[in-house]
Design a protein around this nucleic acid. Structure first.
Lengths: 186, 186
DNA sequence: GGTTGCATGTAAAACGTTACATGATTTT
DNA sequence: AAAATCATGTAACGTTTTACATGCAACC
C-alpha cells in the first residue's frame, strides 16, 4: 500500500513513541516543518484512515472530561514504516522565492541581482539563527532522538553554507576582488 | 494586486523576452523547475487572467494554420514584476523525503541512518550531474541570462555540498576516524 | 476571570498535477 | 510513414491550507 505524504510523517512520529494527533502536529511544527509540513486538516483524517487500515491503533486516554486519543503503531504499521524507509525516496519538491528572484534579476534591471542575493543571504541567516535556538531548546529537553538532531544540524550547516555562498557571490557582483570559490571534483 | 505563484514565474519569463505558453513551460522545465515548477493546467489559465488584468498582452502569431499566441509584458506588467521583485520574499517550501528518512532513522532501527544518508548523498550526486549537463547545454546555446546561470551554479554547488555533508556524516556514523566538521561562527 | 495551551475535528477554498483531447509541423 | 515536437486547452482528481467551531484545563 502506497503511503500518502502525511501518512509517512505520522507513522514516523509514532515510531518514536505513541502520541495524540495534537502532539504529532506540535512536533511537526518544531521539527520536520522545515522540510515536511502537515496541517490538522490532513493529520486527523489520515489518523482515521491509518487506523482503519490497521497500521495504527488509537487508545482513549481521557483526562478528567477532556478526551484524548493516543495512537501507536501496530505490527503492520511498523512494517509499513520500515518498508517505506527501505524503498526509494521519490519526493523532492521545492518552491523557493529567493531563488526565483535571483533567476529573474536580469529581467528586472539594475541592482536587482544584488538585492536578491542580499535577501537570500539574510533569509538563510535568519533561519540558521532560528534553528540554533531550536537546537538549544532540544538539547536542554534532551529527548530528541539522534536522527532528529542530525537533520537539525544539517539545517544549520546548510543555511550557513547558502548564506556564505550568497556573500561570496555578492562580493563578485560588486566587483570586490574576485574570490576563488572552493572547487570540488565533478 | 497579489501575484499568484504561477504569475510570478510567468511575468519573470516574459521579462526576458516575449514567448508563448508552450515556450514558458519548456523553459520552466529546464530551469526553474528545480525550485519553482509549473504545469500547463496552471500556465494557460493564468496567462488569460494576466491578460485580462492588463499585465501582459497576447499577439496572435500563427504559422501557417498552426496557431500560436506570443505574450509580452505591458508597462503595468513590468511594474508588477519590479514591485514583486523589490518586495519581501515569502515562499520557502520544501518537501524532501530524504530528509524525512534521516529524521526518522532512529525510529526504524539498525542501519537505517546509514542507508538514509547514502540515499541522500546519491540523490544529490545525481542532481548535480544533471545540472552539469544542463549547464553544458546552456553554455553551448549561449542565450541564458547571467542571472539564470547563477541559480544553476548555485544548484550545482549546493548539491555538491550536501553530498559532501552526507559523506562526512557517514564516515562518523561508521566510526571511521571522527571528522572535524568545518565550523562557522554563530 | 482571562489568557494560553490541550484537544479534536470539518467545510470551503485554493492550489496543483495528470490525463485527456486535438491538431499542425518538422524531423527521421 | 512514423515519431517527435510545437501548440493550446480543459476536466477530473487529489492535495493542502485556512478558517471556523467547540470545549476543557491550567495558570496568572
Amino acid at each position: 500500500m502506497e503511503l500518502s505524504a502525511t501518512a509517512r510523517v505520522i507513522l514516523g512520529m509514532l515510531g518514536f513513541w505513541p502520541m495524540s494527533g495534537y502532539e504529532i502536529k506540535s512536533l511537526v511544527d518544531n521539527s520536520t516543518r522545515f522540510f515536511w509540513a502537515a496541517s490538522y486538516g490532513q493529520i486527523y483524517p489520515e489518523l482515521r484512515r491509518l487506523a482503519e487500515a490497521g497500521l495504527i491503533e488509537g487508545e482513549a486516554q481521557a483526562q478528567g472530561s477532556r478526551k484524548r486519543t493516543v495512537y501507536s503503531l501496530t505490527e503492520a504499521g511498523r512494517a509499513a514504516l520500515a518498508h517505506w524507509h527501505a524503498g526509494k525516496a521519490e519526493i523532492q519538491e521545492m518552491r523557493d522565492e529567493t531563488m526565483l528572484k535571483i533567476f529573474f534579476a536580469d529581467a528586472v534591471g539594475e541592482g536587482a541581482t544584488e538585492s536578491a542575493l542580499e535577501a537570500k543571504r539574510d533569509h538563510h541567516h535568519a533561519v540558521a539563527a532560528e534553528l540554533r535556538e531550536l537546537r538549544a531548546m532540544k538539547e536542554e529537553a534532551g529527548i530528541a532522538p539522534n536522527s532528529a538532531m542530525r537533520t537539525l544540524r544539517l539545517g544549520i550547516d546548510w543555511n550557513d553554507w547558502v548564506a556564505g555562498w550568497c556573500e561570496r557571490e555578492l562580493a563578485e557582483v560588486r566587483g570586490e576582488r574576485p574570490r576563488r570559490r572552493p572547487r570540488k571534483a565533478a
